[in-house]
Amino acid sequence: MPHDHPHPHNKPLSDVELRVKALESILTEKKLIDPDAIDLIVDTYETKIGPRNGARVVAKAWSDPSYKDRLLSDATAAIGELGFSGVQGEDMVVVENTDDVHNIVVCTLCSCYPWPTLGLPPVWYKAAPYRAKVVKDPRGVLEEFGVNLPEETEIRVWDSNAELRYLVLPKRPQGTDGMSEAELAEIVTRDAMIGTDVLAAH
């Protein structure tokens, strides 16, 4: 049995840690997986695929009206133009925030999320409280994120599923008229593209 992953021996491995190690060790032995490939996969999602991709989509939509039209009519193809296609982003819908409508995305059943544009979902998105509450009390949830919308704003909650993933096109903040597409991409937050953040004026 190889013991080639040095770790500080100050507390014994937890049951969960042991189960994961056992599984990886047996699957490696059976040559069904390659531990080096796992390192590569993990690195890709930790460092290469993330919300900066989605921010570039949003910035382009703010800067280029014809791109925005394409994005709202066929998001999968428009996002594909920028190269952010792939697993867990096969069928995309982009919903636009306006003065009258604010959109929020959830996956009540599990954790469906557009990986190619936003990366892996945050813990709160996958956890029970958000999934349970946002469909019933979206304003209350938004308050937990420090967002207070006017009474008259309509809130639409979109429940993602295995086949279809949503991305929110946030409202372009005031005071950003002179900004380049690259500068705009810098101010777009992950939560704004989930709908739990509203971008502040600049």
Partner: peptide, 12 residues
């Protein structure tokens, strides 16, 4: 889980 009560705060 959609609509279930009593699961606590979201704690983002």
């Amino acid at each position: 889980l959609g609509g279930m009560d009593g699961l606590g705060p979201v704690n983002p």
